[in-house]
Amino acid sequence: MEFRTVVEVDAPGFQIEPLESILFVGSCFADKIGRRFEEERFPVTVNPFGVMYNPASILHTVQRCDAAPRIAFFTLGTNHVYRLKETGEIVDNCQKRPQRLFQEEELTIDQCVDYLSQAAEALHRRCPDVRIVLTVSPIRYAKYGYHGSQLSKATLQLAAHQLTKEKPFVSYFPAYEIVLDELRDYRFYQPDMLHPSDQAVEYIWQRFVEAYFSPRAKHFLQEWKPIKEALGHRPFHPESDTYRQFMEKTRQQEADLLARYQSEQRI
C-alpha cells in the first residue's frame, strides 16, 4: 500500500548543466535552495540585495542587478507589500522604521503577474535563452493568520500559473505542493512549525535534481559527493601533517574536477 500522495513534477523543457550560473531571487526559501546549489559548486547569485518576499521586490532586484543567467529562480513568499506613505513606493525592506510610516497592501493576481512579467522580460532581454523557474515558498506566514496565509499563497499560485501560460520560457516547480501535499507532516518542519526542516529542503532538492538536471549534471554531483564529504571531515588532530596533506590532496581533487567540467562546458 502507498501511504502518501506523490506530487508529479512536470518536465520543464530544458535541463540544468554542470556548473551553470544561476540567479536566485525571492524568499528565504530561495536562500536555502540557492545555498544548496552553492554547496554543489554551482556559481550562483542568491538575493544580491537581501531576501525579497513579494513579486514587486523580486522585480526591484532584477532591475538593480546586471545578472544575465540562462537559469533564474523566482521564489514567491507573499503577495503582501509595504508602501512608504511619504512617497507611495513599495519598499523591499522597512529597515526597522516605525510601522506608522508604511501602509500594508495585498497585491492582486494581475498585479503579481505584471511585476513578475516585467522581471522575466528584463532577464529575457539580457539573455534570450533564459529559463525562469517559479516556485511558491512552503513557509507559512502565521502573522496573517493561517487562512490569510493560504489566501496569499493561492494568489501567488494563480499568478504563477498565469505567467507560465503567457511565457514559454517560464516553468513552475511545485515546492509548496510537495511540502503541503506529499510530506504533509509536522516532522518535516522546524520547531517553529512554520519553516520546512532541513530534511524537507533536502527532499525538495532531490526531487528538483531528478526533474531538472541533465545526465551530465547528475554525474557531476556523483563525482563531487565524495570530495565534498572529505572537505567536510572534522579530524581529531587538525594541526597534524597527515591531515594537512589529506586536505591538500582533496582540494587538488576539487580543482581538477571543476577544471575538467569547466573545460567541457567551453567545448
Rank of each mutant, 00 (worst) to 15 (best):
Q99R: 14
R64P: 01
C127M: 13
E104N: 11
F102W: 01
F102G: 06
E89D: 12
I139P: 12
H80C: 11
I139Q: 10
A159E: 09
D110K: 08
L101N: 09
S149N: 15
E121Q: 14
L107I: 06
Q99L: 10
V113Q: 00
P138F: 05
L163A: 11
T108S: 15
Q111M: 05
L76P: 06
K153E: 09
L116E: 03
L163K: 04
Q150A: 15
A122F: 04
Q162S: 14
A122N: 04
L101G: 03
T164S: 00
D129G: 07
I109M: 03
F73N: 04
P128L: 10
V136H: 02
L123A: 01
I132D: 04
Q157C: 11
E104W: 05
T164R: 03
R97M: 08
L156N: 06
S137I: 07
H161F: 05
H124Q: 12
S117C: 12
P138Q: 07
C127W: 00
S149H: 02
V113N: 01
H161M: 08
R126M: 07
A160F: 05
G148H: 10
C127L: 04
I90Q: 10
H161T: 06
L151E: 12
L123K: 02
C127N: 15
Q157A: 12
V113K: 03
L163C: 04
E121G: 00
K96T: 04
R140H: 10
Q99W: 07
D110L: 10
A120K: 06
H124A: 12
R140L: 08
V91L: 02
T78W: 06
Q118N: 11
T87L: 01
